[in-house]
Design a protein around this nucleic acid. Structure first.
Length: 269
DNA sequence: TCCTATGTTGTATG
DNA sequence: ACATACAACATAGG
């Protein structure tokens, strides 16, 4: 479920717990989400600690606990954060629950592709600081995109857009949305894009990220908001969907191992 | 039963 | 060394 904007949305679900002490921690110790960390140490470190602040970058989140501990969360394919009453009874997929006086902060993930990682120290962990610069930052330039595409000249543009080293936070639906708006066929080899197309692609990456963050990421609703019908998003999941710009039937096919949806009327090889 | 799923990573091959 | 392709991870829902 979560890409850039959904991750930001879920990060904010825990906002009511910021500044408050964690009284108890519940874990499912054998859950796959703890593969790269020790659940016992997570419990020990976070119990009695204050949840200080949070950040989101790409598809990851980092929570600061006290002045010497950091909790990193990647939501994988099906992870979610939610706010529950303090007496919340952990469900099957609630692998990590931070219980505070007023709330329970819940991380759940049925498929367990997500990851929970603890880092001890005054500074954020290197895996956090090494995340590529945001697509909405100054560092995300047309030149950087151009160079990246050149190195992957033979790969279809669709899977290239999913590479987090250059397009942090972009996932399957955002990539399709971007290509649809830029009118670029997802199978086009990355190295075949003309300079004008690269500029357009760069602009649409930023446009989709910006609008999705405002629409989905900043929403204060208890449920995720869906983009409007003028986007590709609500039409891409089911067979027989129609392009909101042309009215023509959308196509769906696996490209680079991921289901890809495009409008053949706008996106030509 | 079979197929799909908004993600990443390790490994084999070129 | 670098780029590319793909199985594997694990579960629920249509």
């Amino acid at each position: 479920m979560p890409e850039l904007a959904e991750v930001e949305y879920f990060r904010q679900r825990w906002n009511p717990g910021l500044g408050a002490r964690i009284e108890r921690v519940h874990v499912h110790p054998k859950a796959g989400v703890f593969k790269t960390s020790d659940p016992g140490q997570i419990v020990k470190t976070l119990t009695e600690a204050t949840l200080v602040s949070s950040e989101a970058a790409a598809k990851q989140m980092l929570f600061r606990a006290g002045d010497n501990a950091w909790l990193g969360i990647h939501l994988g394919m099906t992870g979610e954060l939610s706010l529950q009453p303090a007496d919340h009874a952990p469900r099957k997929s609630d692998h990590l629950v931070l219980i505070q006086r007023e709330h329970a902060l819940v991380f759940s993930d049925p498929r367990m592709f997500g990851r929970v990682q603890l880092h001890i120290g005054p500074e954020p962990p290197s895996w956090w600081t090494q995340i590529a610069p945001p697509v909405l930052s100054e560092a995300f330039t047309v030149g950087a995109v151009d160079a990246f595409l050149s190195r992957r000249a033979r790969t279809p543009i669709k899977p290239v857009l999913l590479m987090q080293q250059r397009f942090p936070g972009i996932g399957n639906w955002m990539a399709d949305e971007i290509l649809w708006r830029a009118a670029i066929h997802p199978k086009r080899p990355a190295g075949s894009l003309a300079p004008e197309e690269i500029k357009l692609l760069h602009r649409e990456v930023r446009w989709v990220a910006d609008r999705a963050l405002k629409l989905i990421g900043a929403a204060q609703t208890p449920v995720l908001v869906d983009p409007p019908k003028s986007w590709l998003f609500p039409h891409r999941w089911t067979d027989g969907g129609r392009c909101p710009k042309t009215g023509a039937r959308l196509l769906r096919e696996e490209i680079g191992g991921r289901t890809t949806c495009w409008s053949p009327a706008r996106q030509k090889l």
